[in-house]
């Protein structure tokens, strides 16, 4: 599967990568069950249809898409777990599915719902086992553990049985275990799933710090758009196994959301006359006004409002990222238009 073109600039390289699953159809009723047993019928699911992407060394890329879009399947192919049905694929210059030692020693796959840690053992024992797996010498190992413990604030959970840890503690230990061998590429599949906001923030901050220090390439999927917004400048959006956007997150938000929302509280219940085009009042509750204005006019609008001397308070918001991404998949027309503009 190794491709012939040299590909040294990209850490991850795929071309028309795809993976299908044959799902055995379940049948209802006895007769159908018997028939199905004798001649099982399969349904082909194209989990990933055709995905081409290039990711450079040290990049953080957010992988977005609704449930069932094919994100996890892609990560599984990239980490050598699943054999691709078609297309080209190279990670760190290796063909992942060959599962070469050298390749596997340089990657890590972290899945929010799956455990590296041994359930009945304290995390420190799992660390010890991973030390042998990755052949780390004692000194390196101690140093890295100290560092990770420090960054993740997990010194108090190392000796506790894993199953007695809270989800947040477990996830942080999970990250520590997965980073022990200092992978060059990190695949994170929903690393903050089920965690409370505070813990999500902690993990985000950790990942940022970690990336700043060691510059691994990170490919991240998450339910929580805040994760993606905080970590990744670049996003790849997929739907139904196809890539529909690949570029800067800021471009995506800007183009998908040409307007901003301005909330202003005045000391009057009538809105002053302001000579700025395309400003609309969306709603009014006594002296609280909600306005929409094009991105490029927001600055002028705010200045003008302050200059009236009537303004008590003013906030400018973007439409939440969740809604923008949601719109990608619902408002087809809007998005098609957007795509042609990119």
């Amino acid at each position: 599967m190794k491709i012939s073109t040299p590909n040294c600039d990209n850490c991850v390289f795929t071309e028309e990568l795809g993976r299908d699953f044959n799902i055995r159809q379940k049948s209802q009723g006895l007769a159908a069950s018997i028939k199905n047993f004798i001649r099982p019928s399969y349904k082909l699911v194209e989990a990933v249809r055709s995905l081409s992407m290039r990711i450079g060394f040290g990049e953080i890329v957010g992988f977005l898409g609704p449930n069932g879009a094919g994100k996890t399947t892609t990560l599984k192919m990239l980490s050598g777990l699943l054999f691709p049905s078609r297309g080209k694929l190279e990670v760190l210059g290796h063909s992942p599915f060959s599962r070469e030692r050298e390749f596997l020693s340089q990657i890590s796959l972290v899945m929010g719902q799956k455990q590296n840690l041994w359930w009945d053992l304290p995390p420190i024992e799992t660390f010890e086992i991973h030390r042998s797996i990755y052949n780390l010498d004692e000194k390196d190992f101690r140093g890295r553990i100290e560092e990770l413990i420090d960054m993740l604030e997990i010194s108090d959970c190392l000796e506790t049985q894993t199953r007695k840890l809270s989800l947040g503690q477990r996830m942080r230990c999970e990250l520590a275990v997965s980073l022990l061998h200092r992978p060059k590429v990190l695949f994170l599949d929903e690393p903050t799933i089920g965690l409370d906001i505070l813990m999500q923030k902690k993990i985000r901050k950790f990942l940022l710090d970690y990336h700043a220090r060691f510059k691994p390439t990170i490919l991240l999927t998450s339910h929580y758009m805040d994760d993606v917004a905080a970590l990744a400048k670049r996003v790849i959006v997929i739907n139904n196994g196809l890539k529909i956007y690949d570029g800067l997150l800021s471009d995506l938000t800007e183009k998908m959301q040409p307007e901003k929302i301005i909330t202003v509280i005045l000391n009057s219940e009538t809105f002053p006359k302001i000579e700025i085009p395309n400003v609309n009042i969306v709603s009014q509750e006594s002296n609280l006004f909600r306005l929409k204005a094009p991105r490029e006019n927001v600055g002028k609008l705010a200045a003008a409002l302050y200059n009236t001397g009537l303004t008590i308070d003013l906030t400018i918001e973007d439409t939440p990222l969740e809604d923008i991404i949601g719109n990608l998949f619902t408002e087809k027309s809007n998005f098609q238009q957007f795509r042609t503009n990119v």
């Binding site: 599984k76 599962r99 796959l109 590296n116």
Partner: peptide, 13 residues
């Protein structure tokens, strides 16, 4: 079912 095999397969073992 719990993905233990998945994680095992991503290790250099």
């Amino acid at each position: 079912n719990t993905g233990g095999l998945d994680l095992l397969l991503t290790k250099p073992l």
